[in-house]
């Protein structure tokens, strides 16, 4: 029987010790009753065993001089007060940049509007050339007369 993804995730939680006591007991009952689930649990344990091998014997340890070397390096850093001031200065510079950018955009839009690029002089019916209007009226009159 193929296990569902939900069952496999539940199994993972169980093996990782992430289920509470009641859920663990319920899952243990299922494990005892469902061979497919038990087989999946055994396989998962094998994978974990192989993973444990990967973790074995690779622990690095700090040298005894690590802390003192680190403190020497830390002394060359700015003081905490300077660091905080630098953070504040960086935030202020960022804010100024944003304000300048916004001002530049506004100025650009203003210039474009002033130059007529934004609110362009698009001709509307109310702004049509009087000669064109006259011509159109004459055409409509002619059409009307021809129907009579």
């Amino acid at each position: 029987m193929k296990l569902s993804q939900c069952d496999l995730l539940l199994l993972q939680r169980h093996l990782d010790g992430e289920l509470d006591a009641a859920a663990t007991a319920a899952f243990a009952t299922r494990l005892a009753a469902e061979p497919a689930l038990q087989r999946a649990a055994d396989e998962a344990q094998s994978v974990r065993g192989a993973l444990a091998m990967a973790g074995a014997g690779r622990s690095m340890r700090p040298p005894t001089s690590f802390t003192s070397n680190l403190l020497v390096a830390a002394r060359q850093l700015p003081t905490r007060q300077q660091l905080e001031q630098a953070d504040v200065a960086a935030a202020a510079i960022g804010l100024c940049r944003r304000i300048l950018l916004a001002a530049a955009i506004l100025a650009g839009v203003g210039l474009a509007w002033h130059a007529g690029f934004v609110n362009g002089e698009q001709p509307t019916i109310m702004q049509a050339n009087p000669a064109d209007v006259q011509h159109e009226l004459e055409r409509l009159d002619a059409l009307l007369h021809s129907r009579k």
Partner: peptide
């Protein structure tokens, strides 16, 4: 940011950090 406090912090966590970074 006192130096001795920072040293204490380093001493407390350096083994764990080395294990992770290793």
């Amino acid at each position: 940011g006192s130096e001795s406090a920072f040293a204490a912090l380093v001493d407390r966590y350096k083994d764990r950090l080395f294990r992770l970074l290793g």
